[in-house]
Structure formats: C-alpha cells, structure tokens
Design a protein around this nucleic acid. Structure first.
Length: 726
DNA sequence: TAGTCTGGGCTTTTT
DNA sequence: GCCCAGACTA
C-alpha cells in the first residue's frame, strides 16, 4: 500500500514491526519523524487500531503539532479515519491533563497553575529567606536545580539525602517549597511528572485504567527521557506493551536537565524481547558533512560505531575560517550569507547561524543590523520571559486563583501604587495571623466594610490595599462571565498599564506590542477559558515562537537547533572554552555531551557547513587570545578548506597562527601609561600614588594607594585616571 | 516610598 | 558587558 511505498527497507521494517516493544535507533536525518508518523498510520490503517487507543509523546509542543499534521496528511481524505482521537502531546501536557482529571486525589484543585523556572526561583528566594540562609552562600538557583533534579529522579523530601550543609539546607527548603507551592495551588514542571508517576505507582486501578485506555504508545526523542519520564512510560506500558520508541543516543544533549541516554539500554534490559532497528541512511546532508560528523562522534568514548551514508554525493568541502575577533566573526558570517545569496546558491532563509551561548547572538545581531539585513532569532526570553508579558499573566493568574501569593506579590505594586515593603510585610503578617492567604485578606478588605483586618494597616496603606482588592474583585466578577479578552482589557485599563511600560521610547512601544500580542493569543482561548489559557502559556516554549514565514537567516543556539535542518549552517565560536564550553572541562560526562552537541550542529547542515572561530574573543568584558576548539582536529583534513591553519595540528601551526595575527595583535597592544610613583587623581577616590602597574589581558592594571581610600587595584581603561604633575 | 547605586553573577533551557 | 537583586539615599 501507498503508506509503505515511501519508506526505505529499514524504515519499512520498523514501521511494520509486530506490536510490542520496539526500539528504533535513528541517526540524524534518517527519517525519524517519518517512521513515527507512518507507524501511527500503520497501526490505524493496517491493523485497524482506533486512534483513541494511541498515545504519542514528544518533548515539545512544536514536535507534537508537526506530528499531528503529518499523520493527518498521511491518513487524510480517503482513509476516512479521523486523527483527532490520538492523544498526541508532550510529557508535561499529558501529565497536566491527567492531574486535572484526577484532581481530587492530589493536594491541588483542578485549576492549579504551573510555575515556570523563574517563578520557582522567586519562590525559592522567599523560602530561603525564611530559613535564614545567606543568599550569597546558598544560591536560590542552585537549590532550585537540586530540587528539580531530585524530582526528576523521583526523590521526595523525606528521602532527600542531607549529607552535607548544602543538602541539609536544600532538604529543608524542598519541604518548605512544596508547602508554599500547594498554598498557592500551584505545581512546578517537575511536579507534573513526579505526581503522575506517583499516583500511577500507588493506584493499581488507575494504572489499569490508563493501560486499557492507551494500549499503544509511541515516544519521540527517547534518548532525552529522564528517570521520571521513563518510569511513567513503564507504568503506562506494563509488561507486554506496544511501546514504540525512537531516539539517537548520539544526540542526547539534555543531561543537565536529567535526561539519561542510558534509558536506551534500560529499555533493552527491561524489555528483552524488544526488537531493535537501525536507521542509517541519511536524507539530509552531503556525504562530506556526514563524514565530518562521524569524525567528531567516533571520538566519543564508549560508543557503538554507526555508519551514516547518503546517496546525495560528496557535495562542497566544509569551510573553516579563523576570524580576528568576535566582531570580525559576525561580519564574516553576514558577508558570506550575502555572497551566497548574491550568487544564487542559497536564499537568506536557507541559512542558520548556531552558537553555544545566547550571549553570542548579540554580536551577530549587531552585524546584521549594521548591514541592514533582517534575521530571525530563536532565543531565550523571547516572548514569555518578558517582564510585561509575565506581569499580565500574573494578573490573570491572580484573578484565576487569588491565593497565588507569588503572582500577587509580583503585581501588587506594579505599576507602582504606593504599596511598599512595609505594607506588604504587614499584609503577609495579617494573613499569617488569620491563617488566610494575602489575596483573601485583600478581597475581604474590598467587600467587607467592617473587615476585621483593616485595623492591621495604617490609613494610607489600608486605602491602597482596599483599592487593589476592589480592582481584583471586579476582575474576578468579570472573569466569571467568561470573557477573556475583556478581562485583559479591563486589567490594562484599571492598572493604567500602558502608561507604565510605554514611555514613548522604541523599547516602550515594543513592550506594549508584546502585551497586545499576548492579548491576541488570549483571543484564541475565548472558548476554552482562562484555565486552559494559563496552562498553555505555562507549557509553551521559545521553540514555538520560531516562525517560518520570513525569508531571513535564523540565529539559534546549538541546543535549539536539534531537530531542525538548513541548507547552509554556520557554527561560530569554535574556540576552546566555547565549544566545548569551559564549564564542562572538569566533568567527563559533560565533555562527552559537548561533543554530541557539536555533532548535532554539524548534522543540521544539508549542503554548506561553515565553521568559524575567532583568534581573540571578548568574554565577560575582557578580550583575550583563544585556542581553537579541539573538535576541529577531529574533522578529516581532506574534507576541509579555508584559511584556518590549526588543522595542521602541531605546535608549529600554533606558532604560525600567532605570527599571522601578530601585526594586528601588536597594533592594539596596550602600552603602560603609569609608572610607579606617579601621582594620579580618581573621580571618586581622590588623589593617590601608583604602587604598581602591569598589563593584564589587554588592559593596564594599576595599583594605587589613595590618600583617603587606601590601596585599590584599578583597570586603567575604566578608571579614567588623571595624572598629576609632581 | 521610589528612584539610584553597587556588587556579584554569569551554559545550555524541550516543559 | 550586561543584568538583576538588594542596599542605600532623597
């Protein structure tokens, strides 16, 4: 049948495997999504399985959407089978739905809210404050991470190992944090998985019910599952499941998030009867690119060799360019894209620029702006992390759930309405004494003229708080009528929010546009209502903001690039410390993951791969000379062209590289301006005498004994020192 | 209470 | 270099 005609023999074997545990190891560009969608099609069209019995799980909303549309296309029209019955979504959305459905068994109500990472850190800060710890010693972010990892490993506070001071604090913070979450009728991302697993473990009947409901399970990007997700799958699948998982251990790049590619091995151990299929034929890249990729990944320790092959032919050589610095690097990228576009070899939209850290994007963006060329950015904080968007969402969450203390505190004085720290502290204290949430106190102040809580506040504070409570009451009433758009309008008007964020500057206008954009999203949730809208905004990611429309190059991190492909790929920042990132240097597993990350980047390229590094680079404000990434040595030399000499390996090459740049380096070499014994004046420290001066990282570091401020070490370029005549 | 200053951080970030 | 939280000042 047609469904199978589009597949190569390996793919067809996988798709038509007998129902049971199936592991598909799919190299990059080998048609992984195609196999998944055809498997779903095969189950429905050939085996007559009802769509409603199928559950397909992905990691991103985008992947879920893509899969649904491809299944629809596959089965559309003639088959007469609807695909809407398939449960297709992310791990988190699946768990959120289950928890809502079974809400009476959980310590939250069915309209709980989901806290994202910044909510978690804000809450953690409060928790640690209450535990009287020093935020400089115990970082809220680190504690959050520790708790997140624990949840991903299914570790609850009572079994959390308090084996040192940090972990002892973390354990107590964990307990308190959970308590605070539930007070706010909230769960964090990790709780969604954790609670779903726990209830399935504990309740035989529910487990059986879900197993009956979804006898056929498919999983995408299986190498990225963490312990909680793997456990969830095992619980849902049972001992004789039809469980079809697709993944590639070589592309596992989310270890720091609890993902463990060894789940692939666990799968084979847990299901010894599992059938395994290998997809090696690549439909994306030229053979040169694949050979380069294999050169990189074959150095991965303890890895089973896989061959990647294509019938696309060798294609162009891989280009390596060494730029002078990060600005030159960015300019090179823009110029090369311009040249490729001009020669007709590529469209701007065919090109992608990939980097290790988001901070690198700025220099590239600036180069595009200087050239007057458009670009698309897939970035952290792109939309839902913006302050104005988070503010409005916090207002909505508060309307939805007045007990949400975090949201209340976020917006209580935003825009400023004379509710300062003193007043907030008094509110929290009053709430604690009354054993109510601060939100409830505010509502009581607003609705009950004889509210007993009024006496807790001074006149002005009472008026301000009552005013806020009245606004909130009005919004809650409006929300009960179910009109989301007018609720948002009313919040914006009542708070005079536009005046607050839009100061007339370009930035202000942009912020207001973001608010309007959020409203546009809300419009689509008119029917579905506030609860689902809030769930949507909590579970959405930056990945989903990537638009295909504009014909412009895409800027993105190597992580964000996974699953995508582009005819022309630039990977920039191929310096030691950048790729691999220096944070990974002292951890073997982390280093292995850096290598996989580079491999992921390389295998995104269809035809042109351009690798760029910079001879010197500014990191955290100081510019210094870099070493080339070791990974460049792993690329087969005969596949490369360009002006990078490091591929000759050897010390001699390194020496030559240094000399080549010598004239440039010299021209900017800093000459010392200050001598020991000179008298100088500083704008705030006053007069002093130079004790020592040396050149450090292209700047002059001057040690000065000031008359009234003692000895200071200053950077000459920043300190703006004035020399005085003796 | 609301603005300004300062110091200490700083990867990646599917949900 | 740039951002954020908390301290500090008007």
């Amino acid at each position: 049948m047609k469904l199978l005609d589009e597949l190569n023999p390996q793919q067809r074997q996988a798709v038509t495997a007998l129902p049971g545990p199936v592991l598909v190891l799919a190299g990059p560009g080998s048609g992984k999504t195609r196999v998944l969608t055809h498997r779903i099609g095969f189950l429905i069209a050939n085996l007559g399985i009802r769509p409603s019995e199928i559950m397909a799980v992905t990691f991103t909303n985008k992947a879920a959407r893509e899969m649904r549309s491809r299944v629809e296309k596959l089965l559309g029209g003639d088959s007469g089978v609807g695909t809407s019955g398939i449960s297709l979504g992310t791990f988190h959305s699946f768990c959120a739905r289950m928890i809502r459905r079974e809400a009476d068994q959980f310590p939250v109500t069915r309209d709980f809210v989901i806290f994202d990472e910044s909510d978690q850190i804000t809450l953690m800060r409060q928790v640690l404050k209450r535990l009287n710890t020093d935020p400089k010693q115990i970082h809220p972010t680190r504690v959050r991470n520790a708790i997140s990892s624990a949840k991903n490993e299914l570790i609850s506070p009572d079994v959390f190992a308090a084996n040192n001071y940090f972990n002892e604090v973390a354990r107590r913070a964990y307990e308190d944090y959970q308590h605070q979450l539930l007070e706010s009728n909230a769960l964090d991302f990790d709780d969604l998985l954790f609670l779903a697993v726990r209830i399935l473990q504990e309740q035989e009947a529910l487990r059986q019910e879900y197993r009956r409901r979804y006898p056929h399970i498919l999983v995408d990007e299986f190498q990225d599952t963490n312990t909680a997700q793997y456990s969830l799958l095992r619980l849902l699948a049972g001992d004789e499941p039809d469980l079809f998982v697709v993944g590639d251990p070589d592309q596992s790049i989310y270890r720091w998030r609890g993902a463990d590619y060894r789940n692939v091995l666990r799968f084979q151990e847990d299901y010894p009867q599992a059938q395994t299929f290998l997809l090696e034929q690549n439909y994306r890249s030229t053979q040169n690119i694949l050979d380069a990729a294999m050169g990189v990944i074959d150095k991965h320790p303890g890895r089973q060799r896989k061959r990647l092959f294509t019938d696309h032919g060798p294609g162009p050589l891989i280009k390596i360019h060494e730029a002078y610095d990060e600005v030159d690097e960015a300019n090179t990228v823009v110029e090369t894209i311009a040249a490729l576009t001009l020669s007709g070899e590529a469209e701007p939209g065919d090109c992608a620029v990939m980097y290790r850290t988001n901070a690198q994007s700025r220099v590239v963006e600036e180069a595009f702006l200087r050239a007057g060329l458009p670009y698309k950015l897939v970035g952290a904080q792109y939309f839902y992390g913006r302050r104005e968007v988070k503010d409005i969402i916090a207002y909505l969450r508060l309307v939805h759930n007045p007990e949400d203390q975090l949201s209340l505190l976020r917006v209580l004085n935003v825009p400023p309405r004379s509710i300062g720290n003193k007043t907030i502290a008094a509110l929290i204290e009053t709430a604690e004494e009354a054993d109510l949430s601060p939100g409830k106190i505010l509502l009581d102040l607003a609705m009950n003229p004889a509210s007993p809580y009024r006496e807790g506040f001074k006149g002005r504070a009472a008026i301000a708080l009552t005013g806020f409570g009245e606004m909130l009451t009005g919004w809650i009433e409006l929300s009960a009528q179910g009109n989301l758009a007018s609720l948002i309008d009313r919040v914006l008007i009542d708070t005079d929010y536009r005046a607050y964020i839009d100061d007339g500057s370009e930035e202000g206008e942009e912020r207001w546009e973001n608010v309007l954009e959020l409203k546009a999203v809300a419009d689509e949730y008119e029917e579905l209502g506030l609860t689902l809208f809030l769930e949507h905004v909590a579970l959405i990611s930056d990945q989903d903001t990537l638009t295909e429309a504009q014909n412009a190059p895409t800027l993105l991190t190597l992580h964000a690039a996974k699953g995508l492909e582009f005819p022309v790929v630039f990977i920039i920042g191929l310096d030691d410390g950048m790729i691999p990132h220096q944070r990974s240097f002292d951890d073997g597993e982390a280093m292995a993951e850096e290598r996989r990350l580079f491999y992921v980047g390389v295998t995104r390229a269809m035809t042109h791969l351009i690798l760029v590094r910079a001879f010197r680079r500014r990191v955290f404000g100081t510019s210094s000379i870099t070493d080339p990434s070791g990974y460049l040595e792993d690329l087969p030399a005969d596949l490369l062209e360009g002006d990078y000499m490091g591929i000759m390996t050897s010390d001699q090459a390194a020496y030559q590289r240094q000399t080549d740049w010598r004239w440039k380096a010299q021209s900017i070499e800093v000459q010392p301006q200050f001598r020991v014994g000179m008298r100088v004046r500083h704008s705030s420290f006053g007069e002093g005498i130079v004790m020592e001066s040396r050149i450090e990282q292209d700047d002059e570091e001057v040690t000065i004994a000031f008359e009234s401020f003692g000895i200071k070490v200053l950077a000459a370029s920043l300190a703006n020192l004035e020399t005085l005549e003796d």
